[in-house]
Design a protein around this nucleic acid. Structure first.
Length: 383
DNA sequence: CTTCCTTTGAAGGAC
DNA sequence: GTCCTTCAAAGGAAG
């Protein structure tokens, strides 16, 4: 059940989000991240093999991950206070203004929206896009001239929420404000990822199809099951058709219209993406292009490492974006609960996990995260 | 065709 | 308050 964090206005419990940053060595991180790309692929390939061999008990691995992840969070939570103290400055520098997010932001005192100062182009319409990330599809493609207005009865359930002004801001973004990230504007512009050992041959941006060729909503989707009762479509709404879960959420081909509108079932509303998911969504294509990898598990490992290598400011962009994403999601679907989607993915390895005892194997990455020991297989020392 | 893998973070339930 | 589980994306691999 979505709930406003008590008292905090629109913070939505994002208080402790700024936790996975590194305290020091930002400069080094930058440099080291360059090395990432060079080593990512090779590391990953070897480590994946080795890890899979050593992690014969994925269940245990997962358990361990949970715990260690928590420990990791706790560890970094200690920095939270510090970061909060420097909050204003941090967000001021990191968020001169979102190109597409116009919610009044407590972290952006001035709320300046100077488009020229945007460094954050988190929204990259690589494959499918995501709302907030995917806020632009709303605006650019379908809602431009007259942004929709939220009905005033948005706050069902008696939840007091910021009102339509904010939302409409989401959908009234200027053309090209987002999604067409100029290569020079990439938030980790190209030099950060040298085209090295991954066999990367051409700039990432050029390897990506034009975002405009990826309409995330067909018209019917918007007018059909994907249309929220507020009149605002949201890519998180997935038609309740069979294979809703696999990657066809936002990039349906308008030419092959799924004719499912007769189904009166409730559309599936997906969870809002968290910061890391947003980061993955943006960077996946880049990693794929650089490393000529396609396997998502491998890509995600690389992205996970890069995520940890980000500076706090860089991560803050995504935390902030995710916060707004949740906020928008909550406004659009006040009665939605993450619990609604439980069981939709078919019970997976849970049963297996049950009988596997903890204390199983963990990935080198986990070990590293926990105690800082150098990972033998994954070169996490770069972090 | 379905599920798993793999990542981090958020949410919710149980205790 | 802590712990645990599930889901969010994604696409190849495996069953």
């Amino acid at each position: 059940m979505p709930q406003l964090s008590s008292g905090g206005g629109d913070d939505l419990g994002a208080n402790d989000e700024m936790i996975s940053f590194k305290d020091e060595g930002d400069q080094d991180e930058k440099i080291q991240e360059n090395a990432f790309t060079e080593r990512d692929l090779a590391d990953l390939k070897s480590s994946l093999v080795n890890e899979s061999e050593t992690n014969q008990s994925p269940n245990a691995v997962r358990r361990g991950q949970q715990n260690e992840h928590r420990g990791y969070q706790e560890k970094h939570r200690e920095h939270l206070d510090v970061s909060k103290h420097q909050d204003g400055g941090m967000y001021k520098t990191a968020y001169p203004g979102y190109p597409f997010l116009m919610l009044p932001d407590p972290y952006i005192p001035n709320g300046s929206m100077s488009p020229s100062s945007n460094k954050v182009s988190v929204v990259q319409q690589s494959h499918g896009m995501h709302p907030l990330t995917s806020l632009l599809p709303y605006s650019n493609d379908h809602f431009n001239p007259s942004p929709p207005h939220l009905p005033t009865d948005m706050s069902q359930k008696g939840v007091h929420r910021p009102q339509s002004q904010d939302i409409s801001g989401f959908y009234s973004l200027p053309q090209g404000g987002v999604g067409q990230m100029p290569p020079s504007m990439g938030w980790q512009s190209q030099p950060v990822y040298p085209l090295s050992s991954c066999g990367f041959r051409q700039p990432y941006s050029s390897s990506l199809p034009n975002s405009s060729s990826y309409p995330r909503f067909s018209h019917s989707l918007m007018l059909g099951p994907g249309m929220h009762s507020t009149g605002i479509p949201h890519p998180a709404i997935v038609p309740p058709s069979g294979k809703q879960d696999h990657h066809d959420h936002y990039d349906r081909n308008p030419h092959q219209e799924p004719k499912r509108e007769k189904e009166p079932k409730k559309p599936v509303i997906k969870k809002p993406l968290n910061a890391f998911m947003l980061y993955m969504k943006e960077m996946r294509a880049k990693v794929i292009a650089e490393c000529t990898l396609k396997e998502s598990a491998a890509i995600n490992q690389i992205l996970g490492r890069r995520w940890h290598a980000l500076t706090r400011e860089e991560q803050a962009k995504y935390y902030e974006l995710a916060r707004k994403e949740r906020q928008l999601h909550m406004q659009l679907y006040p009665s939605w609960s993450a619990r609604d989607n439980y069981g939709k993915k078919k019970r997976r390895k849970r049963e297996k996990q049950q009988d596997s005892t903890t204390g199983g194997k963990r990935s080198a990455f986990d070990t590293f995260k926990e105690d800082g020991a150098p990972a033998p297989l994954l070169p996490m020392e770069a972090l």
